[in-house]
Design a protein around this nucleic acid. Structure first.
Lengths: 152, 152
DNA sequence: CTTGAAAAAAAATTAGA
DNA sequence: TCTAATTTTTTTTCAAG
């Protein structure tokens, strides 16, 4: 992992489709070398995966919410069960287990407010371990990325 | 946009590197047809972009925080200026402008607590428009994706 | 590391139903 | 629209310096 690797990573985390030749032009290293490094970065799982980012709005998913969830009593099995449910919930884009007032903070993407209500009913109401949850509705998705700060 | 497109999208939002041939095997359509559809989905920006997802930990970024930020007075120029700063801040992975107690909710990824302190000093303290902010430190990144719920 | 060549694979294009 | 064949591009692998 040297500075050239970091430069490559900085480029591909914004655009994974650019060719090794283009990257070569940008950072001054032969296309072959770029490819070898990319392979290493993939094999070592520094590059976890390469994904397509879809436009939620164009898929009819027009509502995003950030939800803070508090559990009743925090025992391990309840915690693990909740994590598993969140991982399997298609509406849940992200789930963080956190310190602070709430236990979990979620990013939820759904069709509309009605679909959000359905989501809360399925996952929150009727789940006695959940003591409360607080919803913040997103008015503007100012910045949405999975980018990591890459510097020397 | 038919059901086949949705199936393709569901596949590529998890793995953008699989070939048209593989997708073809999975959903039963010729590789050429897959490619044409993918091109359309890219051109229409339903597929916004294709990116490499990096492992923050392996890049020395071991701390994630969710931050709720409240502004003093919400006037448009202050709002826009803050949005712009967040978009340009490399530590800020995500920024949402929301209803509720806070005005903004951020996901911040940094090296460690010290780097987080540096971040708050640069972006929050000494910014009079910010009335307060509340930090929740992430103990477990239970689910981190940009996936959209795709169903028929 | 580089360049160059070659092979394999994938993507883009074209033509025909 | 789709499929099938062709061409182009890209990736991968290899050898030599």
């Amino acid at each position: 992992m040297d500075e050239l690797d970091l430069k490559i990573l900085a480029l591909v985390q914004d655009d994974a489709r650019q060719t090794a030749e283009r990257i070569s032009d940008l950072i001054g290293l032969s296309p072959t070398a770029i490819q070898k490094r990319l392979k290493k970065l993939r094999d070592s799982k520094i590059i976890q995966k390469e994904i397509a980012v879809l436009d939620p709005g164009k898929l009819g998913q027009t509502m995003t919410a950030v939800v803070e969830v508090s559990l009743e009593r925090e025992n391990l099995s309840v915690l693990d069960a909740f994590k598993k449910r969140m991982r399997n919930a298609p509406q849940v884009q992200q789930c963080y287990y956190t310190t602070g007032e709430a236990d979990f903070i979620l990013v939820v993407v759904v069709k509309d407010i009605k679909a959000y209500e359905t989501f809360t009913h399925e996952y929150f109401f009727g789940t006695p371990e959940i003591s409360k949850f607080k919803t913040s509705i997103v008015m503007d998705r100012v910045k949405v990325s999975l980018n990591v700060d890459i510097q020397k």
